[in-house]
């Protein structure tokens, strides 16, 4: 496929926003469970605002993917069959709950809703946050399934696709949460940093698994099945157009295999070992703002490369019909 930059920014930006929200919510739950000093409402409110900024950024990027953005509202109608439609519905719902979560924290509206022995102070923010978490997970699944449901794009047709989207979002969001906690001098800083390392390393495992899987793919479609002639030597001589067409532009990245390979190594280094090393050093040097900034920025740039590679690696069977002009 030819990687669409609007979708690269959409998926990486909302991933960061989702991951940051999850880090904030689980941070809050953790302070309640472990009875460590509670954070102020402003901490969560500003954090939610940052998450919201990333989500809105992703939403804006998504509009650049549409030929007719003024009709985008129609995209919410086919949720029964289309994962894209489901994403279009879940994204604003999730944004609403992030907004609500932030507002409740800002005005410190947190009446106790239920209390158990383990969760004595479960207030309204925990309830709203829990709904937000469900919406957040649903959004990860929708985003991943948009690609994982296309069975003839064999590189994407695997449960690893939504798993990777989820873990990349959580890892990058948690890295941003560590930077944010460092800026706010939050007692949650250590936890955020350790979880950012754990999530990044887990994402490394699942992404490596999908790379190995894709390396071993046997493609089901060949020129034989594409035109229905059973012969070992078939060569395309003409594709029906002298210049290019939509089919030649949309489905092939136009780069050499060596370029693709270099992008793979760039993201494998920028997304995983570099941020993990920076965060590990930062754990012992918590005043070094630059380490946290670099960890997040480098990981995000790496994720852009990762998403580019994700699209470029997928071989669309229609390319069998467009090999020679």
């Amino acid at each position: 496929m030819n990687p669409p930059y609007s979708v690269i920014f959409l998926t990486t930006l909302i991933g960061v926003g989702q991951g940051l929200f999850l880090a904030l919510f689980f941070g809050q739950s953790y302070t309640l469970l472990e009875h460590i000093p509670l954070e102020t409402g402003v901490f969560y409110a500003v954090g939610s605002l940052i998450a919201l900024v990333f989500l809105i950024g992703g939403l804006i990027a998504s509009f650049f993917h549409l030929g007719r953005p003024e009709r985008a509202w129609r995209a919410a109608t086919q949720w029964r069959t289309s994962w894209l439609s489901r994403e279009v519905i879940v994204l604003p719902i999730f944004m609403f709950f992030v907004f609500l979560y932030g507002v409740l924290h800002y005005f410190e509206i947190n009446p106790p809703v239920f209390g158990t022995a383990a969760f004595p102070e479960a207030g309204l923010t925990i309830v709203i946050g829990s709904i937000g978490v469900i919406a957040c997970i649903a959004l990860f699944v929708c985003t991943g399934m948009i690609y994982a449901c296309l069975k003839f794009l064999q590189e994407w047709y695997t449960p690893l696709t939504p798993i990777n989207y989820t873990l990349f979002g959580m890892a990058s969001g948690c890295t941003l949460a560590a930077l944010y906690a460092q800026q706010m001098q939050s007692p949650l800083l250590g936890h955020m940093t350790v979880w950012a390392i754990i999530l990044t390393m887990t994402a490394f495992l699942t992404r490596s698994a999908s790379l190995i899987r894709n390396y071993r793919i046997k493609y089901k479609s060949t020129l034989k099945t594409a035109i229905g002639v059973r012969h070992t030597h078939i060569q395309q001589k003409a594709q029906g157009a002298m210049g290019g067409s939509f089919n030649t532009r949309e489905f092939f990245h136009g780069k050499k295999a060596s370029f693709l390979k270099s992008i793979k190594w760039i993201f494998m280094i920028l997304v995983f070992p570099v941020p993990v090393a920076l965060l590990a050093v930062a754990l012992f040097n918590q005043q070094a703002t630059m380490l946290f900034v670099l960890a997040f920025v480098i990981q995000y740039i790496g994720l852009l490369a990762e998403r580019w590679f994700f699209f470029a690696q997928a071989k669309h069977p229609q390319n069998l019909y467009y090999q020679t002009i």
Binding site: H65, L66, R68, S82, F246, P317, Y321
Partner: peptide
């Protein structure tokens, strides 16, 4: 009149039978 030009259907067609109109964006 309903198409938003997202191109998802062209990705979902293994035959490459759909082409986006670059001017009408559908």
């Amino acid at each position: 009149d309903k198409c938003i030009g997202c191109g998802y259907c062209s990705w979902a067609c293994p035959y490459g039978a759909r082409e986006l109109d670059e001017h009408e964006k559908v």
